[in-house]
Amino acid sequence: MTDQAYNFAYLDEQTKRMIRRAILKGLAIPGYQVPFASREMPMPYGWGTGGVQVSAAVLTPEDRLKVIDQGADDTTNAVSIRSFFQRTAGVETTTKTAEASVIQTRHRIPEEPLREGQILVYQVPIPEPLRFLEPRESETRKMHSLEEYGLMHVKLYEDISRHGHIATAYAYPVKVEARYVMDPSPIPKFDNPKLSDNPAIQLFGAGREQRIYALPPWTQVASLDFEDHPFEASKADHPCGLCGATESYLDEVITDDAGGRMFVCSDTDHCDTRQAAGHRGKDAA
């Protein structure tokens, strides 16, 4: 049931037009951060205000929405955003990756491969990959325009000299179509290969920082690395305790005060689907 007190999908039409224009420029310049006039949303910054605004601008009444937070459909953030759009846009919702037409995500890409026609909306906290290396927006903007990304390679090199390998494990910087260096949002680097050549449209919204960027389908996205230290997508070296999956990204869950722990799929839909198909891990009840 749509809440009639609000416009369709909460935002007013002029705001949606402004966001839609930014999305189109973002798609035309893959990896470039388009400034937009982010609105105050009925949730605090850091809870996905950018993703929510992008979702509001792309949703149609026929869409089926899935929202995940660190891969899970059942966390507070995911549940609230799902019910927000259920109420203001009247859209159907689902937890199944395959059934969703629009997926809003915080910090994960679903395990199940996406298909053409799906839209993946990322919630982005800090869209500027160079921000922690250079705090001035005027300078980072100049660095992007001049394609001056040496500083990022120095950072990765310092990782290697200090730790023996590139220690960046999430928000691992990527280069889009050999032009813009982009922050893929804090997804684990395990998910980085899925950014490239993906059949779905990928949209990134940063509410507090007021930036939108995008990857059209089949865009080439390369994780930055060195010839002698090639990029490696890593995960905990365990099978999932519940479904026994060996290929999925795992969360480590502390189970008691005595060092007990288990590893479970971070993608709850993937894990549930596997368990329903009869797969069992060593910790399954």
């Binding site: 839609r20 999305i23 189109l24 059209p216 389908p217």
Partner: peptide, 14 residues
């Protein structure tokens, strides 16, 4: 407008 934008976005993305 939501339907029209979806068509425009899909056209621009593909």
């Amino acid at each position: 407008a939501a339907h029209a934008f979806r068509a425009i976005m899909n056209a621009m993305a593909r």
